[in-house]
Nucleic acid binder design. Structure first.
Lengths: 345, 345
DNA sequence: ATCTCAAATGGTAACGATTCCACAGAGTAG
DNA sequence: CTACTCTGTGGAATCGTTACCATTTGAGAT
């Protein structure tokens, strides 16, 4: 019969090397206070047996778990995939693993994921919350002293550190740019109005419009290609169709683009298009799509950096300076001008 | 001072509920053999303290870790992002977490990642190996009885279960389709010839060409936009430019498309284009790009399913039937006809 | 020769859960 | 009335590692 635990243990190494467990422990932790002779012998046994320390035992002993948890709506979404990639890199630099869970923006699933991650005693949590109003478990963990950082989105009044793109400003700048082209009937298209980011962008759009005395034209019901199609079709049928469309998110931009192409509406001649969030092929489309570009990798990277900053400061004694920061950290967005807004005809 | 471990323990629950630790353990594991009275009392204390079992302690006691490791070249790559998403879903269905690590196709980093994951005693490993020739650590883990499944790519002669798309056949079908359009000077463009998948696709292309008596025209040096541009520019300058291009991977397809557009070569009139691997905007480009479509989610899903199948069969006693399978499992690809190959002009 | 000190080493108690075993008390069949 | 079984319960060993403390040894100082 086979042993159920195929991995050799520290005790086995000790026995085989004819030393105590303490000595082996010292060897695998840097070899201080061990004679060169013993060190070589123990190391040889370790290599021979292929010994690898059991992280679970270390965690039980009180060490950090060397894992961080990430809770995101989807991995397949390029935005969150990039965040995850950046966070993984930071985690790896801290000798830690990243556990990724997905929520599909369902608060219930989000809660379950946080629960499971907590059972596993991850050192910290990166969370893109589905709901900006609250997340009881995340807040409670934060109060218990477990480092939590929210990113891309915010939980208001939670006191949890967060890293965001400046959605409000990005949308404001985008709208102002369209206005500066002379467009006045600017339609704002989006979906999922419950998301923090989209609300912020909508706010930016509204402010820019009102500031110039223009009337906001909003349709937040665009969920898929079909709804985009019917929304745009309806507007084209009216006497006064919009002269520009500002889309609040990636997928909406693509739906709008394809719909306009389908109805053979020339972009930007009849209707200009400007989207929030860049995507790989935005410049390969004809016309190339102008967009607001978010610092995608930075969001994931900075969030993870702050997480480690916080979790490393735990237990460092009172004289350890925790860098005082102002949250939320807002990262700047960039207006990338291509053809669809009318800039380079 | 604050306790370094902020989480309440089972013993604390037991003390507060005035029962033994055994009873609390029974409560959190289904409540069998506990009187309704005690059950309620213990449950109340658990809720009140917000107790959550410490997974590390359970693992040490011999339970499964409820984590699986995934080792992929990149998370930001949509192909692997989809695999990861699918695998995460399967993991979650088995009450497990997915630990994702990235290698950038560097065998050294891959080895390190496998090492770290092993320290964490993950229940199993999903691996898209950088090198098809061997991966000593993965093979050794597999021999030790730790479930490993490779996906998308193969390690030859390793005996490790694997799940792949049928790259050879996909490329053969693609090439045959171009030939059926009447093209004869079909250029095959790709990069990173060390990857298993690309080698298989190249093999399929070669076979299809030779089968029809056509001479293969291959350039595997396309690493980025610049190299694609110069490769195509050179060919256009020759007296006999290709009449079709078959690209072996996603990024190459996009490079080729953009280069052809830049040189104002009409697609498919002068040069047709067919790419391996679909991408979200392939149908939004003009012309829309014809592609070989891989069952992306299926690859990740099936790989994860087989992993759990294998790891659940461990310790199930000899009478437990392990479904006997033939590896590698090859999943079928699909030819998606759009405009760029000349099908729908 | 004796004392002191540092280096090298090992025994053992934790850490937080599970689980084997023991045991008390109640019901019940003979 | 005895001999069971069955339910409800808890004590204590255990998993693999670390860390506190004790012990041994040899070198150098007095």
């Amino acid at each position: 019969m086979h042993k159920s635990h195929p991995h050799p243990t520290l005790a086995e190494v000790a026995r085989k090397a004819r030393v105590g467990t303490t000595t082996v422990s010292r060897v695998i932790n840097g070899g201080e206070r061990v004679s060169p002779d013993t060190l070589k012998r123990v190391q040889a046994v370790i290599d021979q047996l292929g010994y690898m320390p059991n992280q679970a035992a270390r965690v039980l002993k009180g060490e950090r778990a060397k894992t961080i948890g990430m809770v995101i709506p989807s991995i397949a979404d390029p935005f969150f995939a990039s965040c995850a990639e950046a966070a993984q890199a930071i985690a790896r630099a801290h000798d830690s693993l990243l556990m990724v869970t997905v929520t599909n923006n369902d608060p219930r699933t989000e809660m379950e994921n946080l629960n499971i991650l907590t059972r596993h005693r991850t050192d910290g949590l990166l969370l893109a919350p589905a709901n900006y109003q609250n997340q009881p478990l995340a807040e409670s963990l934060h109060r218990m002293g477990i480092p939590v950082v929210t990113f891309d989105r915010l939980i208001v009044n939670s006191g949890i550190p967060s890293v965001l793109a400046d959605n409000f400003n990005g949308a404001r700048i985008a709208t102002e740019h369209l206005i500066s082209h002379g467009y006045s009937r600017i339609l704002c298209l989006g979906g999922e109005p419950t998301l923090y980011t989209l609300r912020e962008r909508l706010r930016g759009y509204r402010l820019a419009m009102q500031h110039k005395g223009l009337v906001p034209l909003v349709d937040m019901s665009v969920k898929d290609y079909k709804s985009a199609e019917s929304a745009i079709e309806n507007l084209l049928a009216t006497g006064k169709p919009p002269d520009a469309i500002f889309t609040l998110k990636n997928s909406t931009t693509i739906y709008a683009f394809e719909t306009l192409q389908k109805f053979k509406v020339p972009i930007p001649k009849s209707i200009a298009l400007l989207g929030y969030d860049d995507f790989e092929l935005a410049s390969a489309l004809r016309p190339a799509i102008s967009v607001i570009q978010q610092p995608v990798e930075d969001i994931g990277r900075v969030a993870a950096e702050i997480l480690f900053e916080n979790l490393l400061s735990v237990g460092k004694g009172k004289n350890h300076e925790i860098k005082k920061r102002q949250y939320p950290i807002k990262l700047e967005t960039k207006l990338v001008l291509r053809q669809s807004c009318g800039c380079r005809l």
